[in-house]
Design a protein around this nucleic acid. Structure first.
Lengths: 197, 197
DNA sequence: CTATGAAGCGGGGTAAAGTCCGTTTATGCT
DNA sequence: AGCATAAACGGACTTTACCCCGCTTCATAG
């Protein structure tokens, strides 16, 4: 029997994983991210602790899994949604729209994204290479410049860094959030416009 | 007796803190960052665990303290060293030099800086406001633009993000390190030059 | 339908972070 | 010097992430 189909995933495993994610989302909504403990989650889901670890590997893995679902939806908008975020608009306009949407996404998912950070792991949010690659391609199309690869890395960080590293304030109300969004989204636009002039 | 002098720090406390930092540095050099545990450090320093926590608050605090010393030296170079990093050169040249120096610094301190990240804490590396403020001032002088504050935040992230978030590979040899440095430093220069054209 | 083997499950065990509080000690004052 | 006091110390205790391995359950072949 070849590698191609290493046997489908067991039905109970699928059921349990979904149940765990649902439970995790509940706990997250009720008590905040750092009240979501592995034991607590296992108990509330009426499953063994080992099961939780089998599915997610580490605590951060749970949050990564929670992000993934939304992340997939986000990337769908980018790949096949309406312009300017989706295909059809000018590369530079798409790049600006991408940044704005991404900042909004990260603000929304800020708590989860940060909880998905892991002491010893390359990258937390989504697959950074997806964002990075997208930026790189659009940049290449809209404004070729030397060292596109490096610039794309840094623009990725410019987008995701502030929300993961510097503005990690759980005590942010809706008003402030809107302000932060405007600040960063406008800054992103400035950055891209001047960069690609 | 007013607030001004709430009593000098006790001599034994100073001695112990320095001894702890020295011991931590030794353990770090010998076994790597994640072998530096609070219990281990306390035992090796022949002090109680409570003492370690009194001085550093959290595990990440130890690494923050280790960074601080070098960080101070770095900022000194920026504030009063020779140009173009120090004062005297054109703002844009200083900005480019700052980025290059900062990238080198973070590559050197990459392991410590990452270990200084804390699950629930605003910012890990140095005082981000120092880097941010410096970038902002130089940008203002050299190339005024709308939303300088926001752009400065994002440029700060562009500088520190890659090394904290994306390139966290402990298995990097000297050769690769040099490559990464060139990639990012050149990218930074491109970014700034095009941004301030 | 049953056998079988692999995938999944459970929960006790370990190690490390962080808390607490009773005890010790440096320091400044008399 | 002796004393009062706040600071510092120590280490037991609690909580939590993560490991491990024997047991159970599902899916497939016969």
């Amino acid at each position: 029997m070849p590698f191609g189909k290493p046997r489908a995933e067991r039905a109970d495993a699928v059921r349990n994983r979904e149940h765990l994610l649902k439970t995790a989302r509940e706990m997250l909504a009720e008590c905040g991210a750092d009240k979501v403990t592995m034991d607590g989650l296992a108990e509330r889901a009426c499953l063994g602790k080992g099961t939780v670890f089998r599915h997610f590997g580490t605590r951060a893995g749970i949050f990564r899994a929670l992000l993934d679902a939304d992340e997939r939806r986000f990337q769908e908008q980018v790949m096949s949604g309406p312009p300017p975020l989706g295909p059809g608009a000018e590369p530079i306009d798409r790049l600006i729209a991408y940044g704005r949407a991404r900042i909004a996404f990260l603000l929304d998912h800020h708590v989860i994204a940060r909880a998905a950070l892991d002491r010893n792991q390359p990258a937390p949010v989504g697959d950074p290479s997806v964002t990075q690659l997208h930026i790189r391609v659009l940049l290449q199309q809209g404004a070729p410049m030397p060292n596109i690869a490096g610039v794309a890395i840094q623009l990725t960080a410019a987008l995701e860094g502030p929300l993961l590293l510097y503005l990690s304030r759980p005590d942010t109300d809706a008003n402030e959030t809107a302000e932060i969004y405007d600040l960063l989204a406008d800054a992103w636009q400035t950055l891209i416009e001047r960069l690609t002039r």
